[in-house]
């Protein structure tokens, strides 16, 4: 499968990655090569094989409906959450104005 230059430019824009013309030129054949490589999997007949979602047999674990039971996955830690923000004011993240 061949990825052309406009497709690379579109993917880059959707991913908010800024790319120069030279990078776009280089990326188009690279992405094509990756897809070609993955497409080799299509050569194997898997019509009789169950889809596999994990390499070890496992089921999705569910959590109990408890607030802040574990500090690592609970709230009430605003300072930590905001610590890396380029701008934080009055407890909010500050971002360039986005308005519809």
């Amino acid at each position: 499968m061949s990825i052309d230059r406009p497709t690379v430019a579109k993917i880059a824009s959707l991913a908010r990655i800024k790319m120069t013309d030279a990078e776009l030129d280089r990326m188009a054949p690279e992405l094509s090569a990756i897809l070609d490589w993955v497409e080799q999997l299509g050569e194997v007949d898997t019509s009789e094989v169950e889809p596999m979602t994990a390499v070890i047999p496992n089921t999705l674990r569910l959590r109990a409906d408890e607030v802040d039971a574990d500090p690592r996955t609970g709230g009430d830690r605003r300072d930590d959450v905001l610590a890396n923000a380029p701008v934080a004011e009055h407890g909010f993240f500050g971002v360039p104005k986005v308005i519809e």
Binding site: V87, E89, H90, F92, G94, V95, K97, V98
Partner: peptide, 13 residues
């Protein structure tokens, strides 16, 4: 929130 600051939007998660 767009009306709290002249050049920034505030985000509450």
């Amino acid at each position: 929130m767009h009306d709290q600051h002249p050049t920034m939007s505030y985000v509450d998660l």
